[in-house]
């Protein structure tokens, strides 16, 4: 037994989070007969697709050794702007002007909102050399406050079938949110793996000074990363709003924590330079399955939080000790 474990050690290390996920699924499946059903499977995937959107952006930010605490608020504001424009359009009584928004127009406006907030994060961080923690913490509050102002504290509902299709519809037997988050994953994997931008993100996280001396425009890349994180949070906001047929003023509260958890469980180093999108996807799936399993097993919500915390701790400890073993 000892010998065989040693032989397979590299393989175990490489696929440790996949193995953990498999074990988790088997355990929950044994304890609950509702887990391994097709309906539940799609349910889990649909639930995690929002977190995947956000976490993909978060991964890029963390790879540059930064952090984005504002994603939850950015998600809420982007969703609320899209919903508000769709429902009410823009009315300027003074000029006797009314601009109505199509579903497509509202979606574009939502994503632009997220991008703009993200760009602002990046600009503040690079222009004033602010720690990302501080700049995005400020944005967390600002964007939440703007959401409250925009919605006046009430949910914006009744958005119409063609908008809610985004979060609830199916295409070729697969829920639309899964298509969307899957597409985002595919494109960012390509971006990180096959383009200059991706390479520079890894280089900046590994050694900012070496990247600068190699002629990399650090500020431009960083601003790009935060803008992308904001845009992806906005996509998450559109999915949430569309699924609920309602933009809640307090949507996305503490989503940044689930997304940081997914990034960390996925093996991305918080000090930057090391990690991957696919790792984060695994992390998000682990959290999603865990949430789903704990609900199916009727574990009290209070205990659910404790268990989730312990899983995060374990994941990072295992990752640290295996990194040392290399």
């Amino acid at each position: 037994m000892q010998i065989s474990l040693q032989t397979y050690r590299p393989i175990i290390l490489k696929f440790q989070s996949l193995i953990a996920l498999l074990l988790l699924c088997i355990t929950i499946g044994v304890l609950s007969d509702k887990f391994f059903t097709v309906a539940n499977g799609w349910n889990v995937l649909r639930q995690i697709s929002v977190n995947i959107c956000i976490s993909v952006g978060m991964t890029l930010v963390v790879l540059t050794a930064g952090i984005d605490l504002s994603v939850g608020s950015v998600l809420a504001l982007s969703g609320a702007i899209a919903a508000g424009l769709l429902r009410n359009g823009i009315e300027l009584p003074a000029n006797n002007l009314y601009i109505g928004f199509t579903v497509f127009g509202a979606i574009v406006a939502g994503i632009l909102t997220g991008s703009l907030l993200g760009w602002f994060n990046g600009w503040a961080i690079t222009r004033f050399k602010l720690p990302p923690f501080v700049a995005t913490l400020a944005m967390l509050t600002i964007a939440r406050g703007l959401t409250m102002l925009w919605t006046e504290g009430f949910p914006i509902t009744g958005l119409g079938d063609s908008f809610t299709f985004l979060g609830t519809g199916w295409f070729l037997g697969i829920p639309l949110p899964v298509w969307i988050s899957g597409g985002i994953v595919l494109v960012t994997v390509l971006l990180m793996d096959q383009t200059r931008f991706g390479r520079y993100v890894y280089a900046i996280g590994g050694s900012e000074s070496a990247a600068r001396l190699s002629g990399v425009n650090i500020n431009r890349i960083k601003i790009g990363v935060y803008t992308l994180a904001g845009a992806l949070a906005a996509v998450g906001g559109l999915l949430v709003t569309s699924r609920l047929d309602s933009a809640q003023p307090n949507a996305g509260t503490s989503y940044e924590l689930d997304s940081i958890a997914a990034v960390v469980i996925g093996g991305t180093s918080l000090s930057g330079g090391r990690g991957s999108i696919l790792g984060t996807v695994q992390g998000a799936v682990i959290i999603g399955v865990l949430n789903n399993g704990l609900v199916l097993l009727n574990v009290s919500p209070f205990w659910q939080q404790v268990v989730k915390g312990i899983v995060i701790l374990l994941a990072v400890i295992i990752d640290k000790s295996s990194a040392k073993g290399e």
Partner: peptide, 20 residues
């Protein structure tokens, strides 16, 4: 610190200045 990104491989370090 300044010459290399130590955590990246040889290939990636050599191409970093010249990705275009």
């Amino acid at each position: 610190k300044d010459g290399l990104v130590l955590g990246l491989d040889v290939r990636t370090n050599i191409s970093l200045t010249n990705l275009k």
